[in-house]
């Protein structure tokens, strides 16, 4: 891990009128690090994720990102063009529902190739080659390259969405409940895959989940949120094995044991 953080989040708050979305969140994310944001439904996890990933303008605070040239830039002081360019090259966003992140009416190959074409790739053969390679890496067989995601199962769609996001070699990936809506065996396979990819590519990732097992498997560090506030923050194993806050203890003890 390098000496400089990749992302600096300071004092981020989002209010919906008088209601709190999230309040005064501070953290730093280092390259290659996976941070999990956990908490129950309505605790502000997704609001926070959207604020960090420039999908939602925070009421207060700043989010700084270290660009490839090594300089920190405040995401909300960039032009929209720069921000959108960043989002489709250096970042990835994996939605809970693959239909939100995929183009359901174009083939799997075009889904993976879209980002390449967006950054100016104009050679069909090369785009297709890269797409085939990426489908292989997310365990989708090459003969499905011309099928539309509509013809894919939920797990395949989610894997396709991941391939589509990783094709430009991003340094930071946001994941919003990446395993939500998948059955347990598919979840396990997907988590295995994501863990492998994150390790191989040295990605930094912010994973929002209500599933502590996902956090345990994927993340190095985690933040526990409740009512818009970060109530506990630490190494994943520490937080899960030795929770300090009463709410975290409750959360950890409420995992179903089979």
């Amino acid at each position: 891990m390098s000496d400089n953080p990749l992302l600096k989040v300071s004092g981020v708050s989002k209010f919906y009128g008088s209601r709190i979305g999230c309040q005064d969140v501070n953290f730093e994310l280092w390259p290659g690090e996976v941070l999990a944001i956990v908490g129950e439904s309505g605790s502000g996890k997704t609001t926070l994720l959207n604020c960090i990933s420039t999908r939602l303008l925070p009421t207060a605070g700043s989010v700084e990102y270290r660009m490839r040239d090594g300089n920190f830039r405040d995401l909300y002081h960039m032009s929209e063009a720069e921000r959108r360019f960043l989002m489709r090259t250096d970042w990835g966003f994996v939605h809970q529902n693959p239909a939100d992140g995929l183009r359901m009416t174009v083939s799997a190959g075009a889904n993976v190739g879209e980002r390449l074409m967006a950054v100016g790739d104009r050679h069909y053969g090369k785009i297709r080659e890269t797409a085939t390679d990426w489908l292989g890496r997310v365990e989708i067989s090459a003969d499905r390259i011309d099928d539309q995601p509509r013809a894919f199962s939920g797990g395949m769609r989610q894997r396709l969405q991941i391939a589509r996001n990783l094709v430009t070699g991003p340094r930071l990936v946001f994941m919003d409940e990446p395993t939500g809506g998948l059955d347990v065996s598919v979840q396990a396979r997907l988590l295995d895959l994501v863990r492998g990819l994150v390790n191989d590519l040295g990605l930094a990732a912010i994973v929002v989940t209500h599933d502590l097992a996902v956090a345990r498997l994927l993340s190095h560090r985690m933040m526990v949120m409740k009512d818009g506030h970060v109530i506990e923050h630490g190494l994943t194993d520490r937080v899960l094995d030795d929770p300090r806050e009463p709410y975290t203890q409750l959360l950890v003890s409420s995992i179903l044991q089979v």
Binding site: R115, M117, A118, R128
Partner: peptide, 22 residues
Amino acid sequence: RKMHALEEYGLMHVKLYEDIAI
């Protein structure tokens, strides 16, 4: 409109890609 303003025309090539693939 935003795509025109920011010159984001990758999507147009997605359509052409799709044509060749099919």
